[in-house]
């Protein structure tokens, strides 16, 4: 896809500046987004999306310097061109149902829910598929940007090899491969933790989605969440692994102290649940340090890429076996059906 995509993008580059200006004006400027809407905090009181706001966003606006930082995000993501979308929209009924359910569990305000659904419909054609983690990321961006800018950023994330193509699918094999890569890295660096997690029967793909696909929305409080996403936009997918390693290292004394049957506590720790890490001043410093530690983790991209190849092959083999097994079960089920002898042959 990338060749056609880039070619098409290049053709459109000439008119890009004009289009950028036009869409920015129509959406109320670069500093658009729901935060700028009057009464936003009244309308969204108690919204799940703001559960870990921890006082970062307020009716007075963003903390000092953050508007300028956020305005830099589209450029960090390379999302400066208008999206090249042949057929934006979604008519898949199952997807539309899930968009509605997810919007209801993100925003309180009916209008904001509708906006979120419209946004998800715009992104749908890129994968003709959906993962609920995309709902997390899309809704977070809605707070800060106008729809056009968000679509551009999201499309870069799902097209650019530097980010996470293949993640926003109901069955995201690219993500499962990366979760397996993460588990390999933990084995290499923190073997005792790896053994502990294995003894609890937790497969990595079951929980790493919160950091990898959901980009830590609902995991980190906002002050560190925005730094996490900014680092991801800057460094690409390697940062996701760096963060996971920093997190495991930080949690390792707590994890190692647990019994194999304390699975619930392990998962609570790994998602930085408020029952262990309530949003208070002490923890705010802890979270900020965690993201800073993640940025400082030394991790060679070439090593990650080599592990991606190895784990990708393992996953392919596993998926092949699964499909064969399914075909076999389907064939057996068909054999059980009554076949009428008077059915005509072609």
């Amino acid at each position: 896809m990338s060749a056609t995509f880039l070619a098409a993008a290049a053709v459109r580059a000439a008119s890009a500046t004009a289009a950028t200006t036009a869409s920015a004006i129509s959406a109320g400027g670069r500093s658009g987004g729901l935060l700028a809407v009057p009464g936003f905090f009244d309308r969204e009181k108690g919204a799940p999306l703001l559960r870990r706001n921890a006082g970062f966003l307020s009716p007075e606006g963003l903390p000092d310097g953050w508007r300028a930082r956020l305005d830099g995000w589209p450029a960090l993501a390379g999302a400066t061109l208008p999206p090249d979308q042949a057929d934006p929209g979604c008519e898949d009924e199952a997807a539309l149902r899930i968009f509605l359910r997810d919007a209801e569990r993100t925003f309180q305000d009916e209008g904001h829910r509708t906006q979120m659904i419209e946004l998800l419909k715009r992104v749908w054609p890129e994968n003709r598929d959906y993962h609920q983690g995309l709902g997390y990321v899309a809704s977070l961006l809605m707070l800060f940007f106008d729809t056009e800018t968000i679509v551009r950023i999201l499309l870069r994330l799902t097209h650019d090899q530097r980010y996470t193509p293949g993640y926003w699918k109901a069955a995201p094999e690219a993500y499962v491969r990366d979760a397996m890569v993460y588990a390999r890295l933990v084995e290499e660096r923190f073997p005792a933790v790896a053994t502990k997690l294995q003894s609890a029967c937790i497969v990595p793909e079951a929980y790493a989605s919160k950091w990898f696909i959901g980009l830590c929305v609902h995991v980190l409080p906002y002050a560190s969440l925005l730094r996490y996403i900014e680092a991801f936009l800057t460094e690409g997918y390697v940062f996701l692994f760096k963060f996971a390693l920093a997190l495991v290292e930080t949690l390792s004394p707590k994890l190692l102290a647990l019994k194999a049957s304390d699975v619930n506590i392990m998962l609570e720790l790994l998602r930085l649940d408020t029952c262990h890490f309530p949003d208070n001043e002490e923890n705010e410093a802890f979270f900020l340090r965690l993201v800073a530690d993640a940025q400082a983790v030394e991790l060679d991209r070439a090593h990650v890429d080599a592990l991606r190849v190895e784990e990708g092959e393992k996953l392919d083999a596993k998926m092949k076996r699964t499909r064969e097994r399914e075909a076999q079960l389907a064939a057996e089920a068909e054999d059980d059906e009554i076949v009428f002898s008077d059915e005509e042959d072609d």
Binding site: L49, R51, R101, G133, Y136, Y207, I213, N264
Partner: peptide, 24 residues
């Protein structure tokens, strides 16, 4: 009342009693 959607898995545990036996 408002619960965020689940991605991945969540986990819960509770002890109950059946036939005077503790079951986790």
């Amino acid at each position: 009342q408002v619960h965020d959607l689940t991605i991945g898995v969540e986990f819960g545990a509770r002890m109950i009693t059946i036939d005077n036996k503790q079951i986790k």
